[in-house]
Design a protein around this nucleic acid. Sequence first.
DNA 1: CGATAATCAGTAATGATTACTATTTTGTGG
DNA 2: CCACAAAATAGTAATCATTACTGATTATCG
Lengths: 129, 129
Amino acid sequence: MNYSRQRELILKTVKESKSHPTAQEIYEFVKGKSPNISLGTVYRDLNFLAEAGVIRRIDVGDKQIHFDGDILEHCHFVCLDCGRIHDIERKDFCRDENKNLIAKGFVPLRKDVIIYGQCPLCNKKEKEN
Amino acid sequence: MNYSRQRELILKTVKESKSHPTAQEIYEFVKGKSPNISLGTVYRDLNFLAEAGVIRRIDVGDKQIHFDGDILEHCHFVCLDCGRIHDIERKDFCRDENKNLIAKGFVPLRKDVIIYGQCPLCNKKEKEN
DNA sequence: CGATAATCAGTAATGATTACTATTTTGTGG
DNA sequence: CCACAAAATAGTAATCATTACTGATTATCG
């Protein structure tokens, strides 16, 4: 039991892209291969795939959600000038963090680390039921 | 030269809050002290203060921007059940990361690290001009 | 005071995302 | 091969946080 034709196309597009595209950008690309695809379908399928864990959502605070086909652990560097999202390897981030980045020409200014999961209160509640 | 009365009130509200409130929540709170304040003013002043670096924006992907009066380096833990944003100390995050968190009852599932700054290309361009 | 700039309230506009509905596609069991 | 139920889709309308705009108000500083 595989994904539908459209969903497969959207998945392939995200997986093959290196640019962390938005839903709109993915829509514009897949329209070339499946001209009457709808934007709603792109959103629905992207959410489906993200929920299934085969792609990853990236929220960098530029009003649009970006998508990443690489679900292996890595960080992102967002350029405040051009807006591009660069992939950062784990080893270039933790321990002497900025050193490696700066050596590659990046100028890090600010960092956001967000962990998602279940908080102690909700975990306790769940265990009790 | 200080901030205006409204701006001061909004700053104080964010600084004294521990709950990482949204613009709407801040608006509702300050309305109690300055009843005819406008939502637009709250947004404008929050953006002004964030731009000035005295408060911090947090984008956790729940459609609303949250604000944090604590600008010292720390991470955030977002509960996928209740949506609450918990502060995480730096030392509880890096090195044996999850160990400390789990010991406190957190169940970490996913982590997003985003670094903001200038990318090598834009830095090069800037230097050339 | 008085001119000038900053700030504001209130409301309208924006734009990414989601919801909805009628139609089409798909898969399954006979 | 076919009928039929479930899933997916196109196209459009609705949502809703945020921003833009406008005319009025307030602060600043000579």
